[in-house]
Amino acid sequence: MKLPFIVSSSVGRKFVMSLSGAFLVLFFSFHAVMNVVAIISADAYNWICAALGANWYAILGTLVIVGGVVLHILYGIWLTLQNRKARGTERYAVSKNPPGVAWSSRNMLVLGFVVLGGLAIHLVHFWSKMQLVELMGAHENSLGLSPQDGAALIAHTFTAWYNVVIYLVWFAALWLHLTHGMWSMFQSSGISNQTWLPRLKCISNVWTTAVVGMFALVIIVFFIKSLI
């Protein structure tokens, strides 16, 4: 049987990585904007939370996101294993990182796992107390809050300083992963050239910084509020 090129070919596999990655970048961007709303208005934020509860489109969306994440992770592991094999058995005794090679670009799998770990914590903190609760048919989560009161949940989570630290580490990993990943997804799908390569790198840095900055802003604002 002839396998499709997204499985059999290295360029095809990278295309899957870049597509699933692109999808996650869009999701993160939406999520970041949504979070900022929580600073401005708790009611508005909760309205969004309600809209993304146990509705068919939200569930479908969640499933698609889960699918994208799983695909991205599986392909990432698969590619890394293949690449280790391609490297051969004998390693260099001395090896220098050439200047101009970003540290993140060589450690995408590690960064990916850090991001994944952060995601797990995040799901416990939020998703399990929101959409999951609704899916189970309950009207109150373990903290005694309404599953649609996201704003209260944020306020609750980020009163604890260690949660703030964990999330900031997570965001740092995300920033590193995305600054490389974003221009890389254009490169892997062939949407780049001599002129646009530096531009895409710049766009990736600005975009990622904005997205991660918004995430970080929200938790810092809520942490400070909790201190006051």
Binding site: L79, N83, K85, V101, S105, S188, S189, L197
Partner: peptide, 26 residues
């Protein structure tokens, strides 16, 4: 192996060939 766009190749290429050509290949 599979390219992961680290750009190490273009940094070490004795002829300074750009990874923009990899984008074209893709």
């Amino acid at each position: 192996g599979n390219c992961t766009n680290t750009q190490a190749c273009q940094m070490e290429c004795p002829k300074g060939i750009s990874i923009a050509h990899i984008a074209r290949l893709n």
